[in-house]
Design a protein around this nucleic acid. Sequence first.
DNA 1: CGAATTCATCGAATCGATTCGATGAACGAA
DNA 2: TTCGTTCATCGAATCGATTCGATGAATTCG
Lengths: 353, 353
Amino acid sequence: MATIKDVAERAGVAPSTVSYVLSGSRKISEDTRRAVQAAIDELGYHPRASARTLRSSRTNVLALAVPRVPGEYRAIDGRFAIDVTDAARGHGYDVLLITEGDGAGALRRVARSGLADAAVLMAVEERDPRIEVLHELGFPAALLGHDDHAALPWTDLDWEAAVALAIRETAAAGHRRIVFLSSAEHEIAARRGYAVRGLDGARGATAETEAEVRVLSSHRDPEKLGHRLREALAVRPAPTALVVQDLILLPHLLGAVSSAGLRVPEDLSVVLVGSLPDELGIRHLPRIDLPVAEMSTAVARLAIDAISAGSDGRPPSSQKPTAAPASTAPADARHHLIEPRMAGPAIAPPPSG
Amino acid sequence: MATIKDVAERAGVAPSTVSYVLSGSRKISEDTRRAVQAAIDELGYHPRASARTLRSSRTNVLALAVPRVPGEYRAIDGRFAIDVTDAARGHGYDVLLITEGDGAGALRRVARSGLADAAVLMAVEERDPRIEVLHELGFPAALLGHDDHAALPWTDLDWEAAVALAIRETAAAGHRRIVFLSSAEHEIAARRGYAVRGLDGARGATAETEAEVRVLSSHRDPEKLGHRLREALAVRPAPTALVVQDLILLPHLLGAVSSAGLRVPEDLSVVLVGSLPDELGIRHLPRIDLPVAEMSTAVARLAIDAISAGSDGRPPSSQKPTAAPASTAPADARHHLIEPRMAGPAIAPPPSG
DNA sequence: CGAATTCATCGAATCGATTCGATGAACGAA
DNA sequence: TTCGTTCATCGAATCGATTCGATGAATTCG
């Protein structure tokens, strides 16, 4: 492999000159620049990342901490991983994957060995031990999802607004008896952010609409879920719409609906909140997708901003040059609550029976 | 951050001594070792990866090239990414994610900047431009999936055996009229390995069983697929089993079956070949899963072996100490064709009608 | 024409860990 | 006592790129 010295020799200049040509940080005569460029092309030279890093203590790498619930794998996490990587590349960063069960230990290892400049944490939970490590090491990071305590930049879908929007739109389509299938019981018990906020959204929307909204909590056991659902659909007068936040068992759920003799959307409108693997091929239902690309872009940006923010703890003054100086405190640029949007076909009206 | 020099000072020794304590490559007195270890603990010292890499030109990082079909994301790829990363960690390697559309360019960049020691390529296709780059740079690599031309180590499920096994087992369960839904037309036209080999397997199994096997090619368009399927199920006497290799549209497929008035498995046994996201919750069908963990372990191992193999192009003499010397040539240890296995419930017998 | 500037480029130090030969102390043998 | 080993540790060179003065040539100005 060619080094900067080889290039310098071939071009008949000093290594430092080659470096200046590459970085543009000093003026170089056109002749020299051409000679150096030619030598670079002929030798196929590319600077060694390790040497750069050693000198600058910048790796241009982000560590991406993937959540690991043993024996479980959520397809959406893979999507986030890929989208975050794409976004990071857009800023000149590569991504190192952290999948160890002991995420805290792995983060410590990566941070202390200087393998990355910052971390992106996926699916953060309350009292997440990884956050502790980040603080202890003063390692820059950003979170996908949030809990209100973490003093770190984060981005998240506004689940409260998302569920509220789904219910409002369903009511606006004419439905008067709506069932909201929330997150699973164990998620609510664990007070997961999306679960709690989803319920809040349902409550809020219920208060401001004329429709009657029945809240039903989901269950990880397909049998239990099916049972609850059939029961909820059997009440009379029958509900005409089902807003679903727990999508994991959607195929089972649709199966249960269909075996109850109900056609979608003729007899029952089904509206989804959240995301599923494309493979499910469920593109025919009205829904609020999890804006994976948008969130990934935001979190990559936040993590990278956190690097230059460094010890002063605030993001670098990016675009906005002059905000109103003495006005109210500006929204914290480190928190990106993403606004939900409807996707897919329009919500069908209720059966005119 | 503490450096080896800080540790040395605190312990009252030379930096080289600290290094020897860490590596164990020279004998160190017990007293010195303890003093050094104490200094390391107190300072929370961890060697800088970049300095190590610069000296040794070893990164202990694998580059994982994820396939990118624009606008498409297959959940199974994320699983592979995670499992490969786990396997690599087991050997002391981290994983750098490569997701760029221009996979060849990205690999070139990563290889030439010395960010990784080897690459793992997922979902390799014929005449894959990435392979060209690897050869050009002499960069060690291993492949997930294969095409017969690539002169690189690879691992893959034996799709031919997998489909053959599925059909044989279905026949063994008593079915006499079986429909095999192969890969989608466009995949067969592109001569994708799994598609072609699946068909071969179906042909082979057909020849050696008494059952009548009708081969039906799938289609990426759900409508077309549904049409074909209904047609195939409408022939009389009716087929009693459906072996499916194209799982992408499985929910649609099951929908079509159910809307044809057929219950699974009472009226029609459905047997799957390949893998789906867990979210589908389709654990109730007999199937041959893609052995993701096994393949990931194998490919990580192959890639790492390829590093030490280096320029001589052969894997290091790993476990096997003495093979029969003058016997027939041993199976190429660089190719791991993985044997299929049935999973899930037993295949139901055909309806006794 | 000589002094003052500007300009392009060079040389050397630096980042942090590893590794080889050198060094000196301790010990055994003659 | 003296020479030859052995043993533990030290010092210096090295990996490759960056960056800050230093240097000398070219240019400008009085």
